[in-house]
C-alpha cells in the first residue's frame, strides 16, 4: 500500500500501442498545439543589461566596505562579521594605525587584509547586522561572473567604496540607495522573527 500524496497520480499504462498510436500522429498534434500556444504568451525573459528586474529595498547584493564622510575607513578589524558569517566567507588581518595615517583609518586599529569569498557567501546580511561600526553593508549590485575561482575572492580594494572627497562622483554612484537603506536601518524596527 502506498500513501496517496496528491490526486494527480496516474496509473502507468503498459499496454502495447495500437497501430494508430504507434504512428504518434495524434500525440504529436497535441504537443504541437501546446508549443504553438506558447508563441502568443508573454515572454518570460527581459532584455537584461538595459532592463533589470526591480528588486526590493532590502535585497542584498555585493558587499561594500564603508568610509566616513572624510574618506576614512570605518572598519576596525574587530572580526565580528567573520564570527557572524554562517558560511565562513570572511577573513581579515588587523593592523595598528601608525602616526600620520589618521586620514586613512578612523580608529587605532584597521583591517590590513579583508577578503570575502563570494563563492562561499550566501548574501544573508548577517555581517552587516553584526558590524558595530557600520563598516560593511550589502549593496544592490549583483555579483558579477568570473572565469577563475581566484576572481571570486574579493580583496579589500575590490570591496572599498570610492573615496568621498577625492572621487565624489564615483562615491555617489557607489552609494546608490545606500542613503535610503541606512535610513531604514536606523529607524527602530521590530524583527519579524524573535
Amino acid at each position: 500500500m502506498s500513501v496517496q500524496l496528491t490526486n494527480r497520480a496516474k496509473q502507468v499504462d503498459r499496454k502495447p500501442m495500437t497501430f494508430l498510436e504507434s504512428i504518434y500522429l495524434w500525440n504529436i498534434m497535441k504537443g504541437m498545439a501546446i508549443t504553438i500556444s506558447h508563441l502568443f504568451r508573454k515572454k518570460a525573459t527581459i532584455n537584461y543589461p538595459e532592463q533589470t528586474r526591480s528588486v526590493s529595498k532590502v535585497w542584498r547584493g555585493l558587499h561594500v566596505l564603508n568610509r566616513d564622510a572624510e574618506g576614512r575607513e570605518n572598519c576596525t578589524a574587530c572580526g565580528l562579521c567573520a564570527v557572524a558569517c554562517p558560511a565562513e566567507a570572511i577573513t581579515m588581518e588587523a593592523a595598528e594605525r601608525l602616526p600620520g595615517e589618521e586620514h586613512l583609518y578612523r580608529e587605532e586599529k584597521y583591517a590590513a587584509k579583508y577578503e570575502i569569498n563570494m563563492l562561499r557567501c550566501i548574501f544573508c546580511g548577517l555581517c552587516e547586522e553584526a558590524c558595530p561600526k557600520d563598516a560593511i553593508y550589502l549593496s544592490q549590485t549583483i555579483a558579477p561572473s568570473n572565469y577563475a575561482r581566484k576572481g571570486f575572492i574579493y580583496k579589500k580594494g575590490d570591496l572599498l567604496i570610492p573615496h568621498p572627497v577625492n572621487e565624489p562622483e564615483a562615491y555617489q554612484k557607489a552609494l546608490g540607495e545606500k542613503a535610503d537603506n541606512n535610513k531604514i536601518k536606523k529607524e527602530p524596527t521590530i524583527p519579524e522573527t524573535a
Binding site: T35, H38, R41, K43, A44, T45, N47
Partner: peptide, 12 residues
C-alpha cells in the same frame, strides 16, 4: 521561433 516557443526573446 525556438525562443518564442520557449517564452524567450531570441537574438535581438
Amino acid at each position: 521561433v525556438a525562443a518564442w516557443l520557449q517564452d524567450r526573446r531570441g537574438p535581438n
